[in-house]
Write a protein that binds this DNA or RNA. Structure first.
Lengths: 147, 147
DNA sequence: TTACAAGCTCAACTTAACTTGAGGTCAAGC
DNA sequence: GCTTGACCTCAAGTTAAGTTGAGCTTGTAA
């Protein structure tokens, strides 16, 4: 019998809740990797389940596959990631994740921070400040109407 | 002079950091509303800035325009939303937002909850459990390989 | 040893969320 | 009163993230 540790694409799909076509897609994008049997069928190591879980979670909170792919590169191919590996990954995302967490909390808590700001002053509004990269891009597009 | 409280689409774009074309798009989707001048140009009340801010924040954390639109219907057209209005909106989203916040924290904290789970058991993995709606949909697609 | 579920590739279609462009209108300063 | 930048509409294009389908191959269970 084939070793228990090898999974077919259908098995990964069943256990991860992700469609086979999506797994093919992730593989084409380099987010997951497989090797092939002599008959050209994909076989996955168990670590793929964890990678897929991360992909879905990250997507769910609005991280693009491109970003996820970049982050996943910090995970080792072939061996099971250690706690250190995970920490590297999450550290790479920490700022962005912290940002999103605080945005989510603001939404959840009724945007209380913004209730008093009137959103009239783009410079002061706590909701807009997360976008200061736009302001920094220097296109001049974000100027207030009256100079 | 026109009343200070009326904004053109270009002014809203400049102050919200959102492209004019996107504002048109949001309006076509019913997320924001304007009235027209005699010359058929859009004019917005100041509350549109807050609505747009919410739209962008919600999008950033992975909420679709369709969901945002549904939630925004709880906000009053025409008058400035009160604290109560905001709370209604955020209450409608609370479960989903709480869910996302906890997902984000797991990612940020190195997926510690999952490090020990091996992701071998789809039923126990805390990362997968958020997906139990899939399991509940009764397609039978999520069965483990060996029955 | 054969039937048939599961795989494979590749191209085309889909949906969301916008952007771009063409072709024409509005309005504020000189 | 005319010019020029901001607006308008509508159609078509774009990118991300997949899904669907056609046509062909594999592998396993009766």
């Amino acid at each position: 019998m084939a070793p228990v540790t090898e999974l077919t694409v259908g098995q990964v799909a069943a256990r991860s809740g992700v469609a086979v076509s999506a797994l093919h897609f992730y593989e084409a994008r380099g987010l997951i990797r497989s090797h092939r049997t002599s008959g050209n069928q994909r076989r996955y190591g168990r670590d793929v389940l964890r990678r897929v879980a991360i992909i879905r979670i990250a997507q769910e909170v609005g991280i693009s596959l491109a970003e996820i792919g970049a982050a996943l590169e910090s995970l080792p191919e072939g061996r099971t990631p250690t706690r250190e590996d995970w920490n590297l990954l999450s550290t790479a995302w920490r700022d962005e994740l912290d940002q999103k967490i605080s945005q989510l909390k603001k939404l959840r808590d009724g945007l209380t921070d913004c209730i008093g700001c009137g959103c009239m002053s783009i410079d002061k509004c706590p909701l807009r400040n997360k976008d200061d990269r736009l302001a920094r891009e220097g296109t001049g597009a974000r100027r207030l109407i009256a100079p």
